[in-house]
């Protein structure tokens, strides 16, 4: 299968290792992975912040860049959600590539039927299901299925897992105190598990959670799911 990899602006800029890991996993499974140089940003921030019209050219750019691929895979459920749901609803874009665009874990589990990618990761890990993965892209337990098959990984349950981490795009700046209160509760929950790693399928939420954990100075780190799945 010829897969177009959409890194997203956040991962490309701040989490390149998550995008690299995504490519590694897909190539190991025998697929041709192409990273179009023209890719930039899906426009979610603009659509979510009231600047819908500014997002329109970015959406058109996405469709032009990826329209010909058999599948488009991204390490961000939130951006995938924006593409699949907001492009048609907010921008009136109707193109078959939207449905072929998937977040990595849902692509592996739901499209390829792969639950074991042969990874090994000797850490205690807790999984934070991000809001958009739960309620927009609705990837279900795909990440957990993959994590359960990682060798030497100890998976611990996160209390109140489905609570939002407080990121919310520009919400984290406009309502930074509320966002921080949500983050504090999320960090408490993560630290209560004793896990060394908190993982998720969204770079933006990991930016928030990782930033909170780092400021608290503990040993727990935020790591993208793709990196865990690519570890050998």
């Amino acid at each position: 299968m010829k897969i177009g990899l959409f890194a997203t602006c956040v991962a490309d800029t701040m989490f390149p290792e998550a995008a690299t890991a995504t490519a590694t996993i897909l190539r190991r499974l025998g697929h041709q992975v192409v990273v179009p140089r023209e890719q930039t940003c899906c426009g979610q921030m603009h659509m979510n912040s009231g600047y819908r019209r500014s997002a329109a050219p970015l959406a058109e750019r996405f469709v032009a860049t990826y329209g010909a691929f058999d599948a488009v895979v991204s390490p961000s459920s939130s951006c995938v959600g924006a593409i699949r749901q907001l492009y048609p609803e907010l921008l009136g874009i109707d193109h078959p590539v939207l449905e072929r665009t998937m977040e990595l874990s849902e692509f592996l589990v739901h499209r390829l039927g792969v639950e074991d990618v042969g990874a090994t990761y000797p850490h205690r890990v807790t999984y934070h299901p991000t809001c958009h993965s739960l309620r927009v892209t609705r990837i279900g337990d795909a990440p957990l299925r993959l994590l359960r098959n990682v060798r030497r990984l100890e998976l611990v349950e996160l209390p109140d897992a489905q609570e939002c981490c407080g990121f919310g795009g520009t919400f984290s700046i406009k309502n930074s105190e509320t966002s921080s209160a949500m983050l504090a509760d999320k960090c408490d929950a993560i630290e209560s598990t004793g896990a060394g790693i908190c993982t998720a399928v969204d770079g933006s939420c990991l930016l928030q959670i990782g930033g909170g954990l780092s400021r608290r100075g503990g040993d727990t780190r935020a790591v993208h799911l793709a990196e865990i799945l690519a570890s050998r």
């Binding site: 989490f15 984290s172 930074s176 921080s180 983050l183």
Partner: peptide
Amino acid sequence: AWTRTRDLRP
């Protein structure tokens, strides 16, 4: 508003 409570990844 971000860095008051959070570190930022460079």
